[in-house]
Design a protein around this nucleic acid. Structure first.
Lengths: 230, 230
DNA sequence: ACAAAAGTGTTAGGCCTACACCCATGA
DNA sequence: TCATGGGTGTAGGCCTAACACTTTTGT
């Protein structure tokens, strides 16, 4: 058994990092899944992820695996829960540190191989490998909570966006409908939006105003602690 | 090296579960620490915790270690973050799943050995072993967030308590001061408090009313999703 | 007597919610 | 021409925040 090179006095679980990747296409939340090429659960869809190396943090691992499996390079992933059920992996004891990443679909270049990695609409997720259905439920719950404390939505939208797009995003994540005028007022009052370009004179009334995220204002607000009420 | 009985093809980190235990003595938040009896960090204070067995979840591990090291039996611990810095333990690669538990000091029987396990007031915490200072900061932040969504305060107070005690608890956790009348009104309006005993006729005006937590009302509220605004 | 704790109610301002009309465009 | 999307403002109600006095008790 010369391949079992790493020995310990006590049993050690294996540790993986998984990545729930959210995107937004203007209508619905999308989730990136990869199709498993090996057993167990060969052929089933799962979140990108893999075994943590001994010299990397869970965030580094999540980013590395994400890149390796989907070609997606993202700057920030954030852990949200660690799943430790004893039998969650049939091979050996594996715990997984689950992460969330938000990406702009507009910046994702066409997938390398749609047979291997694909975006699924939130309402259209197949049954997943391992306990990934459970992980997904927790990730969606975490996303709902976070969007009320941090303007994470801006990481899902293009740099410049319309108010309707922003509203659609909030409605998709929180699964509620808002009054359009009230949403406008609330967002503008918050002060973290800037008009991307003053409405040009020739803009017809039909042309929506474009906004972008004002990071300076957001930093100020975050100092004082703020909350988006919905 | 016959004692290295557990071998793997790839290196596995060790996994521990640590437990940040909060109590409340009516004035300030207390945190339970244990003094390390072995290297590394021998003699330093740390959170109770230890290596996860191969057949237990992180919550089970946290509860078991808590009992073993402090004699405290608690029914619920909840993980809040997993610390994966590569060098957080000088012995080997160790990641720790950190948990929070809330206990009623009134139900804790006198500590077995104050030299080994002791309650420290929040403002009076010594420098801790490993990265436990960091863990503590995160735990306090998590506690602040949770208290706004769930009436976790009731797990820290005796079953029957006065409004002032409740207010003191919120002020201690959130590190702010509230107007007494507004706090009364807000809490009563929430509807999750019941008067423990109708004010007896001979109660002087100085005698505070006693309340207890109304679990039924809370369950209803939680269904609809609620939030304590502070 | 004085300080400390507890009970109690009002007011003003801000925020939330609900709601309607007009214009421009594309089908 | 009709449906759709976008821009815009107001009125009522609720909640919040600020605020003072009285009673009792212990020192």
């Amino acid at each position: 058994m010369s391949e079992l090179k790493y020995s310990y006095k006590y049993p050690h679980p294996a540790v993986t990092a998984d990545c729930v990747i959210f995107g937004f296409d203007g209508v619905s939340i999308k989730i990136l899944l990869v199709k498993r090429g090996i057993e167990p659960y060969k052929g089933k869809w799962a979140f990108p992820g893999g075994f943590m190396r001994i010299d990397e943090t869970s965030e580094e691992c999540a980013k590395r695996e994400l890149d390796e499996e989907t070609g997606l390079k993202t700057s920030s992933v954030e852990q949200f829960y660690t799943f430790t059920d004893v039998h969650r992996d049939p091979r050996e004891r594996v715990i997984t540190i689950a992460h969330i990443a938000l990406v702009r679909l507009s910046e994702v270049k066409g997938g390398d191989d749609a047979e291997v990695a694909r975006w699924f609409a939130q309402g259209d997720i197949p049954s997943l490998a391992f306990d990934h259905d459970h992980i997904l439920r927790m990730a969606l719950k975490t996303l709902k909570e976070r969007i009320c404390f941090e303007p994470i939505g801006f990481e899902l939208l293009p740099e410049v966006f319309t108010m309707s797009e922003l509203q659609n995003l909030y409605e998709a994540i929180l699964e509620v409908k808002f009054d359009r005028r009230n949403f406008y007022n609330k967002m503008l009052k918050l002060g973290i939006l800037s008009e991307a370009e003053p409405r040009s004179a020739d803009a017809s009334r039909r042309t929506p105003s474009k906004y972008k995220f004002n990071a300076t204002k957001y930093a100020e607000l975050k100092q004082k602690g703020f909350r988006l009420e919905f």
